[in-house]
């Protein structure tokens, strides 16, 4: 083939399109700025912003698995919330076993206890994800209606099993010494735990981005989201890839559960289904299947929920719904619509 037949030609992305790409990212600082104006007091604003980001990070952790699972296999797991609850309860049990470590004045021991609790929770929820995928989800691939019903059934059963194992009462999950209390910056008091949550969430987001952009498995996931059949035709077993993603997503939900439990300090069997509402809103705002969109959506929801909780407590949840409606009016497929071959 001759060079003249096809001249190399760098396609310029028009400025307008580039801006449209970046626009959703800008929403977060814009919202923070609006929050500052509305709240007025910088110290309260800082406290609320950190709280909002922490909440957003935790929701992101729980939602990220859900959105990738959807992107890859067109599966929405309505039972995802059960993993959150199970994670929290497992974390609670482990922390209770390690009571000596959590009460110890040593920061190192405290953090090790939390780490062990998190790992245990992720292990259990990851395995639970395996069982869930094999028993509940696998037989109904491609049938959305049954999928929704069956995963909802899974949620009911899982919640009831929590009652069987841990009893019907809500439990108190206390933070270890090192994560209690606040830092005072100027006039603003910022809870230490929230900073930790922001740190973990950010690390996870960056790690996930790295994996998706720079590893073969990440490439496969992104390719699979767009066109699973083609990935199969290239010789990869998408089903196995999906199982890995499903288990990872479940484990992340478990991680989110421990973090949320430590954040709220009480855990109940139906905490998962309550958080799922926020998780769904975030996933819809972000665009089903998009990790970046999910992250931005989570930040927006976290910030908005905290600002409105301060300004007008009664409308906190409504405000997030309003945000969802507004985003969908603007972009009916969410902030980052996912390209699908079919």
């Amino acid at each position: 083939m001759s060079e003249t037949a096809i001249k190399p030609r760098i396609e310029k992305i028009p400025l307008k399109e580039q801006l449209a790409q970046k626009l959703p990212v800008l929403l977060v600082p814009v919202l923070a700025a609006v929050g500052l104006i509305a709240i007025g007091n910088p110290a309260s604003w800082l406290t609320l912003t950190v709280a909002g980001l922490a909440m957003g990070m935790m929701i992101f952790i729980m939602a990220s698995g859900l959105t990738v699972v959807f992107g890859l296999m067109d599966v929405i797991n309505f039972g995802h919330g059960a993993f959150v609850a199970v994670g929290a309860f497992v974390g609670f049990t482990v922390l209770a076993w390690l009571a000596g470590w959590t009460a110890s004045p040593s920061v190192f021991m405290n953090l090790t206890a939390v780490l062990v609790a998190i790992l245990a929770a992720m292990l259990v929820t990851g395995l639970l994800g395996l069982a869930f995928e094999r028993v509940i989800v696998m037989p109904v691939y491609g049938e959305h209606l049954k999928q929704i019903l069956v995963t909802m059934g899974g949620l009911i059963v899982a919640q009831q099993m929590i009652y069987v194992v841990w009893g019907p009462d809500e439990l108190h999950m206390s933070r270890p010494e090192a994560l209690q209390g606040s830092l005072v910056i100027g006039e603003a008091a910022i809870e230490k735990y929230r900073l930790v949550a922001v740190g973990i969430g950010l690390a996870l987001f960056l790690g996930m981005r790295h994996i998706l952009k720079n590893t073969k498995i990440g490439l496969l996931v992104r390719a699979g989201v767009e066109n699973g059949e083609m990935v199969e035709a290239l010789g990869y077993r998408v089903r196995r890839l999906f199982l890995i993603v499903f288990m990872t997503g479940s484990a992340l939900a478990g991680l989110g559960g421990v973090m949320w439990g430590l954040y709220q300090e009480t855990i109940t069997a139906h905490m998962g289904s309550e958080i799922m509402v926020l998780v769904f809103i975030v996933v819809i705002i972000g665009g089903l299947g998009s990790v970046e969109g999910c992250f931005i959506g989570a930040m927006l929801v976290g910030l908005l929920a905290n600002y409105t909780a301060f300004l007008a407590p009664k409308v906190a949840l409504i405000s997030t719904i309003a945000l969802m409606v507004a985003v969908l009016m603007w972009r009916p497929q969410g902030l980052y619509p996912v390209v699908k071959a079919k």
Partner: peptide
């Protein structure tokens, strides 16, 4: 949009309504 989308939106709206 998809059936799944409707299920998710209604779940969110209904919970918000209950809280309201």
């Amino acid at each position: 949009v998809k059936a799944i989308f409707f299920a998710m939106v209604t779940l969110a709206v209904a919970s918000a309504f209950a809280v309201l």
